[in-house]
Amino acid sequence: MSSDSSVDVDADRPLQERHWAISRVSWLIMLALLLVAALGLTGSGGVLSRQQATAGAAELDVPRVSRWAAADNLAVRVPQDTTGDIEITVPNEFAEMFAIESIAPQPSSVSATPNGHRYQFESSPGPGKRSIVFSIRASRPSLPTHIGRFAVNGETTGELPIVVLP
């Protein structure tokens, strides 16, 4: 019990030395976690937290790393040279993983299709870039997975990987 004849203290120096070593390694791991977070690999900002995709002339800004139950957004920028509606299809896998809380501007119609949810937006006459923002919130954590292809006015993106951290 005692490490010393003059005092009854249950000290364990080898254990303490191991603990100090493990603590220092743990501090380095915590520092590494901070750096990873600063890069955006834990979501919520940072250069690596988002990914850009194109669907024809449209540009999509999609989260690459999101967080369970945290607010996020998906932005679609569509250059529109001619008058006509904008049609965006959100793949089913994405729609099942993220709750779409609001859309600005509001779509004129939404329909369920085999490829996903199709949102139709009215567009004002005249050329220029339109921006549509979906406010989303992950409804469950997920390992890195492909969430299907978005489509904008009939043009599709590639498969987009996404991870939702718990």
Partner: peptide
Amino acid sequence: KVIDGRPTFLIHDGKIDERA
């Protein structure tokens, strides 16, 4: 031991444990 640790001598028999 792992969760709570164990007491650590900072001074032992009048000798200061600088490392501790």
